[in-house]
Write a protein that binds this DNA or RNA. Structure first.
Length: 749
DNA sequence: CTCAACTAGGTTTTT
DNA sequence: CCTAGTTGAG
């Protein structure tokens, strides 16, 4: 391979950006301008030409998907496996925090709470404080708390600043309790990951210095979507001093102010607009040539976005030809809209242009609620599709339950997880019992789980309840001991079976339980996948990976299916054929956008993002009436449709008459019939799981006594030193180990 | 304590 | 329309 042939593939501007390695650098990269290529080449250039060690580079993105793509492409360029920090903000912080959690007074095994957990915590607090959750919903409080954390306002600060009127006092109280409970549960929420990292850096100069020295070159993707805390994080790392005491700021940020679509989540567009002011001496490179879309699509995008004020001056251009016009279809209602889109997909997939390649199509909508209609329309036509987002996979009850078992095994202080599973499957433990345990824990200042370990307490319940509780505590404890000795999938199987969770589902004999079982087996495949990737992955590492997974990351580019997702999730992706349904005022732009002046601007940027995802063709559709939660309303065409240059569009209704006839005409899906759920495989996994469980149960029946000679599958032969309950202490040749009976692969000799 | 039936209230976007 | 939460009967 030629030394710098990867640079030859870049255009002048891209190359200029890639080769500018010292000092602050702002790359203003328009949609489809080859930003990822530029970034990856820059990394390759740093490593190969500037002799920078990969260890000294930090690249941060917003999504796991973007991180993965960047890593793959860098690897291709420098041709070897590189262990470099190319991570999302959150996973980078998580990695740092795992190392130094103790400095902040957290346990090393702290849990990461997702929004569902957060809600549960706030709900409990409301109950405790007698707050009417009908007047003030948990999400109301969480919204404020999250914004506070982004701005680095602690509960204490909040109470100092606000706290004048009743409402603010209440929020302050809830916030304070929330902080306390998370800390007590040894848990952090998503916002904490950044917040605590910044606190760590400010609190401990030595640690900061260590990371400053390590990360001598920092790159940030999608810089327009950074919020204040992320900015602070970057600033702290980048404000390093070299040997002579000069400030070294090798910070390279890449972004496009027109694609800032997360202001509602605290993204501060000023970060990118004022980068040059923030970092004096910054160099700016603009990438304005678009390699993705046809000229018509690009012009359409431009005609919409040019209605925004206060943009960085730039204009995308392309060498590509005009291409097809943009098709607009005004449907009767949302069903008609879906029908139209499905028939268009059939039309193109049947023609030579798109072949049977359904991967080329995407339906990008504003809200997840819209997906349903499309799913129905596509499936009646045997068009394979894949929905991303909506209820996250990990939000499904059964998955969440099993995750809580695992969380508890990893971190016993996680009261939330315990409460969730203490009566799941049913163990006859209701409100009364739980309340008793709770007060006890409170009095002692211990975690709920620790109360469960107290035999005296347990014995005070009815025999049935106490036996169940004892078993549960034993189960968690045993796996806590064994968790690093066993394979991840075995741990999962063991918990699934020995908790009785699997049996409870099997006994139900309902369709729903059946599908839950399938999901659980699917989850096992997921776990097995991680295991394959890294056979030594332990529970903690697995939880870490899973905690920060978004649904978009499950997007499997290999699967031959139409992609359905929100416009937000589509950022950073591209498709030859893109549909944008629901172009109606109130839906897109959403009605909330009309409250604030810049609300509409953000929606417009979202529209711009959507349009620029399309490579070859773009469809915009709307429905004259739309049924939303029961009520059918007349709609008005979106303001964005009106803003779009009409010369670029093929008018409404062209396909109307013709296509209505295609209703009910199915493609005979010779190749369209890829099954979504490999049913047999799941059944097999289920049987296997059961078999393994039986073996475990049998092993659990073994009884050991002090002095017995035993053999362990991994540690070899040993002698029993002590047996107490489920825990057994064994002296091996060169070590003494605690093992859990019934789980550890032990045999009596 | 569990389950079934009913009611009331809520929908933007995500790491 | 859907889900989460409540209530009343076993």
């Amino acid at each position: 391979m030629g030394r710098t042939d990867y640079l030859d593939k870049l255009n002048d501007k891209q190359r200029e950006a890639a080769m500018c390695t010292e000092g602050p650098l702002l790359i203003l990269a328009g949609a489809g301008s080859g930003k990822t290529s530029t970034m990856t080449c820059r990394i390759a250039y740093l490593i190969r030409e500037m002799d920078v060690h990969p260890y000294n580079i930090l690249a941060v993105t917003f999504t796991n998907k973007a991180a993965k793509e960047m890593r793959d492409r860098v690897q291709k360029l420098i041709g070897e496996g590189v262990n470099m920090w190319i991570l999302t903000f959150h996973s980078a912080c998580l990695r740092i925090l795992r190392r130094h959690a103790e400095v902040l007074g957290y346990g090393r095994d702290f849990a990461v709470y997702d929004p569902t957990d957060q809600k549960t915590v706030v709900k409990n607090i409301c109950k405790e404080l007698n707050i009417d959750t009908k007047k003030f919903t948990p999400s109301y409080f969480l919204g404020i708390i999250s914004h506070c954390k982004e701005q680095r306002i602690s509960a204490k600060d909040y109470n100092n600043i606000f706290g004048t009127d009743f409402k603010e006092q209440m929020v302050g109280q809830v916030y304070g309790q929330y902080e306390k409970i998370l800390k007590k549960n040894n848990a952090m929420d998503f916002d904490d990951l950044l917040l605590k990292t910044v606190e760590l850096f400010e609190q401990d100069e030595e640690i900061l210095l260590m990371y400053q020295n390590r990360f001598r070159y920092i790159m940030v993707d999608e810089y327009q979507d950074t919020n204040m805390i992320q900015y602070t994080f970057l600033r702290l790392l980048a404000d390093a001093r070299d040997g002579d005491g000069n400030v070294r700021r090798n910070l390279c940020v890449v972004g496009d102010d027109d694609q800032c679509i997360y202001q509602w989540r605290g993204a501060d567009i000023r970060n990118i607009l004022e980068f040059e002011k923030d970092f004096p001496g910054a160099k700016t490179v603009k990438l304005e040539q678009n390699y993705r879309s046809t000229a018509n699509i690009l012009a359409a995008a431009h005609s919409v976005i040019s209605h925004n004020r206060g943009r960085k001056a730039k204009k995308l251009w392309t060498d590509a030809e005009d291409g097809n016009k943009i098709i607009y279809y005004n449907a009767d209602d949302e069903k008609d809209e879906a029908r139209f889109i499905a028939s268009e997909i059939n039309r193109l997939a049947g023609a030579d242009e798109a072949g049977e390649d359904y991967r080329q199509f995407a339906i990008l909508y504003r809200t997840n609620a819209q997906s349903r209609t499309f799913e129905e329309a596509l499936s009646t036509r045997d068009i394979p599709y894949r929905v991303l987002g909506g209820l996250r996979y990990y939000d499904r009850k059964e998955i969440k339950d099993m995750m809580c078992y695992m969380r508890l095994v990893q971190n016993r202080a996680d009261d939330l997880a315990l409460v969730r599973i203490i009566n799941e499957p049913k163990r006859g433990i209701g409100g009364k019992t739980l309340e008793k345990l709770r007060t006890l824990a409170q009095v002692r200042g211990s975690s709920l789980f620790d109360v469960l370990l107290d035999d005296e307490v347990i014995a005070s319940f009815s025999s049935k309840v106490s036996e169940n509780l004892r078993n549960l505590a034993g189960l968690i404890e045993s796996y806590g001991i064994e968790r690093d000795n066993m394979k991840l999938s075995d741990l999962y199987d063991g918990l699934l079976v020995n908790s009785g969770y699997m049996k409870a589902l099997e006994d139900q004999h309902t369709v729903e339980a059946e599908s839950r079982l399938e999901n659980l087996m699917e989850f096992k495949t997921v776990i097995a996948g991680y295991e394959k990737e890294d056979p030594n992955m332990n529970l903690a590492e697995f939880m870490e990976r899973i905690a920060l997974l978004a649904d978009v990351d499950n997007h499997d580019a290999e699967e031959n299916a139409v992609t359905l997702m929100t416009l937000h999730s589509a950022k950073g992706l591209e498709f030859p054929y893109v549909f944008m349904p629901g172009m109606e005022d109130g839906l897109f732009p959403g009605w909330r956008a009309f409250d604030r002046e810049d609300g509409l601007e953000e929606e417009r940027r979202l529209c711009y993002v959507g349009i620029t995802r399309a490579k070859k063709r773009l469809w915009l559709t709307s429905a004259r009436t739309r049924t939303l939660y029961g009520r059918t309303d007349y709609t008005r065409e979106s303001v964005f449709l009106r803003e779009l240059d009409q010369k670029l569009m093929d008018g409404d209704g062209i396909y109307e008459k013709k296509d209505r006839k295609t209703e009910g005409v199915f493609r005979d899906g010779a190749s369209a019939g890829t099954p979504f759920k490999p049913f047999d495989q799941l059944k097999y996994a289920q049987a296997q799981t059961k078999q393994k469980a039986e073996a475990m149960a049998k092993a659990a029946g073994q009884s050991f006594q002090v002095g017995d000679r035993v053999a362990h599958a991994k540690f070899g032969e040993g002698r029993v030193l002590e047996v107490s309950g489920q825990v057994i202490r064994i002296e091996f040749k060169d070590q003494v180990r605690k093992l859990a009976l019934g789980i550890a692969p032990l045999e009596k000799l």
